[in-house]
Design a protein around this nucleic acid. Structure first.
Lengths: 226, 226
DNA sequence: TAATTGTTCTTCGTATACACTTTGTCCGGA
DNA sequence: TCCGGACAAAGTGTATACGAAGAACAATTA
C-alpha cells in the first residue's frame, strides 16, 4: 500500500514537460520525426496527449540541446545533423572523452573497474549471440559509466548530450560496427584499470578515431537530410 | 510599468522568452540574483514586466544551462557554483579552448587575425586607462571571437556556455587579474597568426592554467552560497 | 513536547482568447 | 501566360484565469 502510493507519487514526480522532452528526444533520435519535419505545437500536443504549455517548454529545451531549430513566428523543425557537423561533433567528443578516460583512470575504484568489466563481459556475450541491439545498448552504458566515473559533472552532462547526438547520426549503421569496437573497449578499460592517465587518454582517442571514421561512412548512407 | 522594458526590448524581433532568458542570465551573472535565492514565477514575471508563460520557458532553458535548479513543485532557485565545480569547469574549458585555439590557428584568415589584433590594441589601451570593466568586456569578446574563428559550432556553443559560467564565478575579482592576462592573450594571438596548431594549443593551455589558478583564489572570497 | 491538522503559497497543467506573422491561394490585369 | 496584390488560413506569441496538488509553516491539540 505504501509502495503503491510511493510509485504513484514518484510517477507524478516527473513533470509532464520532462516526459514530453524525453519522448520528443527519443522520437527524433529514432527517426520517428525526420530531420526537416515541421513540429507544430498543436500536433505535438496531440501526439503526446497534453496541452500546449508542456510542449512549448519541452521544445525550448530541445532547441537548447540542438535537436530542433525554432524559427521565430514559424515554429519548430527537427534539426538536420549535416555531415559538416558530424566532423565537428567528433572533434569535440574526442577531447571530452579523452579527458573523461584520463580522469576515470585517475579516480576509478576497484568497484568501478569491476562494473566496467561486467559490462565488457555482457557485451562479449551479446556479441556472440549476435544481439546487436543489446550490444549497442551496452556500448552506450559503458561510455556513460566512464563519464560518471570521471566524477566531473560538467564533462558528464556535455558529453552525454553529444553522445545522444552521435546516436542520432549513427542510428542506422551503428550496429554493424559494434562488434569491432568492442575490442577497443577492452583496451580502454584495461588502461583505466592501470591508473595510467596518459594511456587511458590514448586508448580513448584511438577508439574515437575509429568510431569517427565509421560514423562518417554511415553518414553517407544516412537519411538525406537537408 | 511593463512598458519601459517592453519598449526597450520590444524594439527587436526577439521573442519575449529569449529576452527574459538573456535578462535572467545577466541578472544571475551580475549577482542581482544571488545563489540560493528563490525565483518564483510571479516574481520574475513582475520583475521583467511579462506574463508567467515566457518566464516559465526561460526558466527551463536556464535550468538546462545550469544557472538555476528547479525543484519539482517547489520552483527555481539560483544555482550555486561550488568550488568543486570550478575545478571541473576549468578542466573541461582547458580542453575545449585548446581545441578552439588549434582550429583557429589552422583556419584563421588575415582578416580574422586583424580583428583579433584590433581587440588586443583596444585592450592595451583600456588597460592603460585603467578601465577595468572595458578590459573585462574585451577579454570576453576576444575569447568568443577565437571560438567563432574555430568554425566549429558545437565547440562554440558549449564553450560559450561554459564561459558564461566562468564569468559568473569570476565576477568579483576578475577585474584585478585582467591586466596580467593580457600578456598571455598576445601570446595566444601570435600563435594563432603563425598557423601552428600545436603552438596555439600550448598558448591556450598556459593561459587557462593561469586563469584557473586566479579563479580558484577568487572563489575563496566569493559569495558564500549555501 | 510531540503529533496532527489547517492554512497559505506556489508550481503544474489546462483552457481560452486574441494579436500578429507567415504562408498559401485566388483573382484580376498586363 | 505571367505577375502582383488582396485575402484567408494556419500557427506562433503572449496574456489570463482556473483548478488540482504539493510543500512549508503555523496553529492546535493531546
Amino acid at each position: 500500500m505504501a509502495e503503491d502510493l510511493r510509485d504513484k507519487l514518484g510517477a507524478q514526480h516527473l513533470p509532464l514537460r520532462d516526459q514530453v522532452l524525453a519522448a520528443l528526444r527519443t522520437a527524433i533520435i529514432d527517426g520517428d520525426y525526420l530531420p526537416g519535419e515541421r513540429l507544430t505545437e498543436d500536433r505535438l500536443a496531440e501526439d503526446f496527449g497534453v496541452s500546449r504549455n508542456p510542449v512549448r517548454e519541452a521544445l525550448r529545451v530541445a532547441e537548447a540541446e540542438g535537436f530542433v531549430v525554432i524559427l521565430p513566428r514559424r515554429g519548430a523543425v527537427v534539426a538536420s545533423p549535416s555531415s559538416g557537423t558530424i566532423t565537428d561533433m567528433f572533434a569535440v567528443r574526442e577531447r571530452l572523452e579523452a579527458l573523461a578516460a584520463r580522469l576515470a583512470a585517475e579516480r576509478a575504484t576497484a568497484a568501478d573497474v569491476a562494473s566496467l568489466r561486467a559490462l565488457l563481459d555482457q557485451g562479449r556475450e551479446a556479441t556472440q549471440r549476435h544481439d546487436l541491439a543489446r550490444v549497442a545498448e551496452l556500448n552506450s552504458t559503458l561510455h556513460l559509466r566512464i563519464l560518471q566515473i570521471s566524477g566531473n559533472p560538467w564533462l558528464s552532462s556535455i558529453a552525454k548530450s553529444l553522445y545522444l547526438h552521435v546516436q542520432w547520426v549513427f542510428r542506422l549503421g551503428a550496429a554493424e560496427r559494434a562488434p569491432h569496437s568492442w575490442a577497443e573497449h577492452i583496451q580502454l578499460v584495461d588502461a583505466i584499470e592501470s591508473g595510467d592517465g596518459d594511456r587511458a587518454e590514448r586508448a580513448a582517442l584511438d577508439h574515437l578515431d575509429a568510431a569517427s571514421a565509421a560514423a562518417y561512412e554511415n553518414a553517407e548512407g544516412g537519411y538525406g537530410a537537408r
